[in-house]
Design a binder for these strands. Sequence first.
DNA 1: TTCAGTGCAAAACATTTGCACCCCT
DNA 2: AGGGGTGCAAATGTTTTGCACTGAA
Lengths: 147, 147
Amino acid sequence: MVTLTDIKDKLTEANLKITHQRLVIYEALLKCMNHPTAEYIYDKIKEDNPSVSLGTVHKTLDKFVEVDLAKKVLSTDHLKRFDANISKHNHIYLENSKEIIDYHDEELQQIILDYLKKKKLNNIKIKDVQLQINADKIDKKLSVSIK
Amino acid sequence: MVTLTDIKDKLTEANLKITHQRLVIYEALLKCMNHPTAEYIYDKIKEDNPSVSLGTVHKTLDKFVEVDLAKKVLSTDHLKRFDANISKHNHIYLENSKEIIDYHDEELQQIILDYLKKKKLNNIKIKDVQLQINADKIDKKLSVSIK
DNA sequence: TTCAGTGCAAAACATTTGCACCCCT
DNA sequence: AGGGGTGCAAATGTTTTGCACTGAA
């Protein structure tokens, strides 16, 4: 559970001023598990905060990425997507349901990093790795189609 | 390796007409190892094919994805990027130079798939995995900055 | 000949930028 | 009080769309 104080501490740590907009945007990003776009966040918060502008949401999310309060998520649509979960984790792309879900696995991360370290790739310095698992969701309910 | 005959066959299979534009665009996509955008392809081909329009490049690339002649590539910029290489491979995202390069490694792919098979993830059917390696390019030349 | 494919230009979208004003520290 | 942060609107950049025309089958 993340409290308002936690968020404020994070902002202070990052040398960012504590503003109403940043708190609201960060809170919305935390709540949203589906790797939202700036526009999605904007829609979520504007009911309770009608004065916040879309431009600010963009700038704020970029700032969060800059100071490691959030991460950019890869996607095949041409949208910038964000994630408040900055711990190392992998993404499962469910192709049939279009969802992107998180998959945490410290052991797997380590196996991959160790393997790559042995390989000694030239001219690049690895910062981190992330696994993209492409899968289909299996629905437990029997689906019946009628012609 | 995909040849010009292969693409003609694929187009025919998919009930698509074989047009000059499609052949030129596919050829450019094959040659281009850097996961180009529609605009990049357009720039490459327009010298020899000044009449081809950017809109057609977009439509054609989307069509290729539809019929499995190409794949969309995940990216963190908000651009649609494509790849003619539809075989299993990993991507190295060079953050400082903004490049996306291919990294083939059968052994690593197998290690990861074996690991995940042991884990028995519930409710999803894994189709394939792709590793995203985030790294910085190390420039061999000394860079000197002058104030 | 026919209609999928194309070129063109406008529209739709998403993101960035510039600048005056605001408000956190 | 100062300067980072914000709102607004315009600019930018990319993709999509509509429609008349073209050319592959």
